[in-house]
Amino acid sequence: MTTRPGEELPTDRLLPYLREQLPGLDEPLQVTQFLGGHANLTYELKFGDRELVLRRPPFGTIAPGAHDMRREYHVLSRLHPHFAPAPRALLLCTDHDILGADFVVMERRHGTVIRYRLPEEFAGLPTVEERLTVALIRVTADLHRVDAGRAKLTDLGQPEGFAERQLRGWTKRWQLAKTEENPAMETLSRALPRAIPTPQAVSIVHGDLKFDNCQFQPGEPDRVTSVFDWDMATLGDPLIDLAGTLSFWPDPALDPAEMPLPLLEGDWPTKDFLKQQYASFTGFDLERMPWYEAFACFKTAVIAQQLYHRYLQGSTRDARMEKFGLAAKAFARLGVAKLGQAG
């Protein structure tokens, strides 16, 4: 078993449960943790030639509404036939006697994930950064065009008042995770509710659509083959997803020294290119994007602060989280700058 200290799975309870729920798991179990994520914990479960993925919330105190494995299962158990990049969910466990929390088991997908730089599998391909970027934006637009009714996901959320509820929820999470003053966050929490745009459409919103939640077939930079991490998915304004993608894109206003992890390195297209591509795929008017980008920065700052709070509490030993407090301040400042562009 390869896992971070303190994040091991209790296989003495897990293995009998899985064999009871899923047929054919007769081979010995091998567990390997995927170490790239920062919030939900993800593990490969290998039974001989059969491979599965298990996802569970992080250890320690969980913010209300966060890390919702029931929501992830609900989405993935219905979405796959309508959106091929969504992995097929196989099992939801709500019995906390097994792992101490809800967890989901799903099919294992293989491929390449882009985190901070261009993977070797894509090196040397012509205009590869642009092609990967277009693929990311295209899969975002494809998700936003899924008919939630046909996918039987109209119960995923209440679109009316979506942005208002999002703001209230993330502001509450900010207050719970706050460890020190952050004036830019206070500015955003006051200013954002005053200028909420009218949505142009209602779509399935992933909530965290970025490169490291996507997977590509090696050597094929023009198509996203898998999209992961669906625990925040809902129905709402699709431009919130695009803004979330932009918030993780390189920005000259973000100081790399304040980032807990490297920003995307290389010759990548600008944020304006991403917005132009999305507009061409969807036909949406992006005039109000500065507001959406400011909100995305607010949300990213809250997530960073939650991770930093968990680190200060000792709920994780992941040393990367020590700098997330700085990141929360940096994203809040960027959000204030974006909001200023809204006029």
Rank of each mutant, 00 (worst) to 15 (best):
G6F: 10
P10H: 00
P10K: 00
T11K: 09
L15Y: 01
L15S: 12
P16K: 03
E20A: 15
Q21I: 11
P23W: 01
L29A: 11
L29Q: 10
Q30P: 15
V31G: 12
Q33M: 09
T42L: 07
Y43K: 02
Y43S: 10
E44Q: 10
K46W: 08
K46Q: 15
F47G: 06
P58T: 06
T61Q: 13
G65T: 04
D68G: 12
R71T: 06
E72C: 09
Y73V: 07
Y73D: 06
V75R: 05
V75W: 02
L76K: 03
L79Q: 10
A84C: 11
P85H: 03
P87D: 02
R88K: 09
A89H: 04
A89I: 05
D95I: 13
L99N: 07
A101N: 08
M106C: 13
R108T: 13
R108G: 02
R109A: 08
R109N: 04
G124D: 14
L125A: 13
L125S: 13
L125I: 12
T127E: 10
E130Y: 14
L132S: 05
T133A: 07
L136N: 11
R138A: 12
A141C: 11
A141Y: 08
D142Y: 07
L153R: 04
L156G: 10
L156R: 09
G157V: 03
G161D: 02
F162W: 07
A163M: 14
E164R: 13
R165T: 14
Q166T: 08
L167Y: 04
Q175I: 01
Q175F: 07
T179W: 10
E180N: 14
E181R: 04
E186H: 10
T187V: 13
T187S: 07
A191Q: 11
P197D: 03
P197H: 01
P199H: 00
V202C: 05
S203A: 15
F211H: 01
F211P: 01
D212T: 03
N213T: 11
C214A: 05
F216G: 12
F216W: 08
Q217K: 08
Q217T: 15
G219P: 15
D222W: 01
R223E: 04
V227Q: 01
D229L: 02
D231H: 01
T234L: 01
L239C: 09
D241P: 11
L242S: 05
F248Q: 04
F248R: 10
A253G: 12
M259R: 08
M259E: 12
M259Q: 15
P260F: 00
D272W: 09
D272F: 08
F273Y: 10
L274D: 07
Q276L: 05
Q276T: 09
Q276K: 11
Y278V: 01
L286H: 09
M289L: 08
P290Y: 06
C297E: 14
K299T: 08
K299H: 13
A301P: 09
A301G: 15
I303T: 09
Q306V: 13
Y308K: 02
Y311S: 02
Q313W: 00
T316W: 06
D318L: 11
M321N: 09
M321G: 05
E322G: 07
E322S: 14
L326F: 15
F331P: 04
F331H: 12
V336S: 00
V336C: 02
A337G: 07
A337T: 13
K338Y: 06
A342M: 13
A342W: 03
